[in-house]
């Protein structure tokens, strides 16, 4: 990454195939693979950029939050690399990096804007000011949207990762077939920008149970119309809540730019609904391509470049943290 946001090269080793065997991201597998792959990846990225280690200006690394074992491997490696090259170390927050992916996609993106960070572990709304300064406006109070999609898929007997499976089935389904609930938080107007997806998850289980589809019987014949309708209605309830609250947040903050990042940003229905709703209030929506939306190293470099430009580097005693709020992170 050449400052400010010109991408030179990237290397990505996908653990998705590895994780598929286990029905999820299993941490021990993740950190072991991190150890094995990291050095090779850095070498590949440098080779592709036509760079040598001596030419890098800084080393950026995610210092949290995340699976501690995996974060620790990255932080330790980055410290050694920065120390060895005598360049600054820049620790960045995982969610800050997700938002920075939008700057790689659109270097002219102007601040302030509204960011929806939506993945398997996070669902949050932020006001983002120049220099990547964040103010949290809302967040999930129980499950993340991606988690609700994954667990919904699991209840329907679909393979991992569940989000894309639900989206694929939903394409042919009736989105209004089943009135799954949306948590609008009407009794908590001060917290209406928060999300809750545990209710819709429970409603799905109840619906499947009533229809005789839960627990899953692997030998039973699948009614594909019924399955498509359930998937479409379930996905719509989640997408509707995400899109509606995102637009509420943007209008409430008088922001006319919305940025969507995180793994669930890959969901085509979310992109479509959000674009429609945002257009009604004269908001633009920026969604980086899928490769930049799911976890990747480019977004970490982008956030690191922004911090470096603002003189916000880290000391070599940078800690890996499992859990940290984004606002107020140094």
């Amino acid at each position: 990454m050449r400052a400010p946001h010109q991408l030179l090269s990237q290397a990505l080793y996908s653990q998705a195939a590895e994780h598929q065997r286990f029905g999820g991201v299993v941490p021990e597998v993740a950190s072991r693979r991190h150890l094995e792959c990291l050095d090779t990846l850095v070498g590949d990225a440098l080779a592709e950029a036509g760079c040598e280690l001596a030419q890098i200006d800084a080393v950026a690394v995610t210092s949290g939050p995340g699976l501690l074992g995996a974060v620790l491997v990255g932080v330790s490696y980055a410290k050694a690399l920065a120390w060895g090259c005598n360049v600054p170390l820049v620790g960045v927050h995982h969610l800050e990096a997700h938002v920075a992916a939008a700057l790689v996609h659109d270097p002219n993106l102007s601040f302030p804007f509204l960011a929806l960070v939506v993945s398997g572990g996070h669902t949050s709304l932020y006001r983002v000011e120049a220099g990547l300064q964040f103010t949290e406006l809302g967040r999930t109070i129980d499950d993340a949207a991606g988690e609700a999609l994954d667990k919904g898929a699991k209840m329907m007997g679909l393979p991992y990762p569940g989000g894309p499976q639900i989206e694929r089935l939903a394409t042919d389904g009736n989105r209004d077939a089943i009135p799954f609930p949306r948590a609008w938080m009407k009794n908590r107007p001060d917290r209406r920008l928060n999300f809750s997806f545990s209710g819709v998850k429970t409603a799905l289980r109840t619906h499947l149970q009533t229809a005789g589809l839960y627990p899953v019987d692997a030998d039973a014949a699948v009614d594909s119309v019924q399955q498509a309708n359930i998937a479409a209605s379930y996905q719509e309830a989640i997408v509707d809540a995400l899109a509606t609250k995102t637009v509420w947040a943007a209008t409430g903050e008088s922001l006319d730019r919305i940025v969507v990042v995180g793994g669930v940003a890959a969901n085509g229905r979310l992109r479509q609904v959000l674009a429609e709703r945002a257009a009604q209030v004269n908001c633009t929506v920026t969604v980086p391509p899928v490769a930049l939306c799911t976890d990747n190293a480019v977004m970490v470099a982008a956030a690191g470049a922004a911090r470096l430009a603002a003189g916000r580097t880290s000391a070599l005693d940078l800690d890996a943290v499992a859990r940290a709020p984004l606002t107020g992170m140094a």
Binding site: L67, G120, I141, N194, A322, R323
Partner: peptide, 15 residues
């Protein structure tokens, strides 16, 4: 505060 207790499925452990 109950609203701060989110699912630890993704992180495995929340303190």
């Amino acid at each position: 505060e109950p609203d701060t207790i989110t699912s630890p499925t993704f992180t495995l452990l929340a303190v």
